[in-house]
Design a protein around this nucleic acid. Structure first.
Lengths: 226, 226
DNA sequence: CGCTATTTTGAGATGGCTCAAGCTATGTGG
DNA sequence: CCACATAGCTTGAGCCATCTCAAAATAGCG
């Protein structure tokens, strides 16, 4: 567990007393595939650090559209807003595979931050990076077309949950075309057509809820045409 | 200046010693219309709090497209990443009207945060809200069409830099169709056509670099159809 | 009084969406 | 172990909102 903590972005650089204080105040939560950790709109009570499995962070718009913001894996965090009193969770997080997370009550994490400023700076760091990521993707959306956005989505998936195999990069998540459409901002029909074209070109191999990237390089080329 | 500080999100809740420490370490920077405060990609050395005027925060994508993220007014901040060492500014900020800002060296602000944890929490607060705003707009982009996005852009402008007059809400910024197109993620031709339609319907009044919202309610209706 | 930046307008092309329908794995209960 | 239901995926046809490109009109500035 120490390795998980010091390897995380939020508790990186902690030692001795700080580390054990953090450790003592954590508790564990488990969720099976499809089960929610937190739900959008609820008061943000706890901060989480995923220890096993993968989770899916998504959001619904007022008009009912759903968007999939990103997947996270072991060592990544969510629900940081819990340290701030009065905030609601801005998104829902559910287990994409059987998962386990460490949780800290928000109030308590705030106290830890006061005692150990490193945590606070780390938190700023995390939020600043999230911000940059969001801004980059905001721009992507504004300027790229569907095929490029899908390529970017697959590459992100590969980075998050890809496993190198003989044939290529296998995505270790049960992922549907609907998920992909929510990631790339399109619909399942277009996803199907694009994937089929790519499969035909030998860039990917698709199956029911599964995805294998044969030539990630080709995807990068599609994502960033000179 | 005290009122500006305590009224800002980042220094809210400070008193006495803390407030004067903050105050002492600030210096002033001015910029005329069109002049930059900071540029995207540069090392983030200072944090800014706008005291007079309006500024435009924008970003360019690797492929050269420009997007206008938002306008800010007096009491709003930018360049918060400067407290974190090693970060570059993720966006450029330039004066939209003759402006003045208080500036703090990043290193120094970090020290203030250690001494006065309130500042750190406030900073988290600001970043968390920016995150939420970005996420909401990310979703907008993903799910709304151009006309709705333009309506949302105008409403945001009105909130930021709107002045209520007899005839409606005047936008107190020199704003071109190009700016609007960058805000709404479209092009100047479509902006022109939509604005003309709205002008015809008595919803807005447009001029060269000027904008008057006659019926903001109608825009809200366009932005959020039942 | 020109020069330049801004805005308008038209015509044409098209990427991606919608809708409708059929197909195929996978799992379930009998 | 079958057959039936369901969730996921595919395919086609048609449409339309938006983009692109070209060009002209307008406004303000020096």
């Amino acid at each position: 567990m120490n390795a998980l903590l010091t390897g995380s972005r939020i508790f990186a650089g902690l030692e001795g007393a700080a580390l054990s204080a953090v450790q003592r105040s954590a508790h564990v939560r488990r969720a099976d595939e499809g089960q929610p950790f937190v739900s959008q709109g609820e008061p943000a009570l706890a901060f989480y650090l995923l220890s096993k499995g993968y989770a899916k962070i998504s959001q619904v718009t007022p008009d009912g559209h759903q968007t999939l913001i990103r997947y996270i894996g072991p060592g990544e965090e969510f629900g940081l807003v819990a340290v701030l009193s009065g905030f609601d969770y801005p998104a829902s997080v559910e287990a994409a595979t059987a998962s386990e997370a460490l949780a800290w009550e928000g109030e308590l994490l705030a106290q830890l931050m006061e005692r150990f400023p490193t945590i606070g700076f780390n938190a700023l760091h995390v939020l600043a990076e999230q911000n940059q990521d969001l801004q980059r993707r905001y721009n992507e959306l504004l300027t790229e077309r569907v095929e490029q956005r899908m390529a970017l989505a697959l590459l992100r998936l590969a980075r998050q949950a890809g496993r190198a195999t003989a044939g290529g990069t296998q995505i270790d998540l049960p992922i549907s075309h609907e998920d992909l459409s929510e990631m790339a901002g399109t619909n399942i029909y277009t996803v199907s057509r694009v994937l089929r074209r790519w499969a035909h070109d030998g860039i990917v191999e698709t199956g029911r809820m599964s995805l294998l990237l044969l030539r990630p390089g080709a995807l990068e080329h599609i994502a960033a045409p000179e």
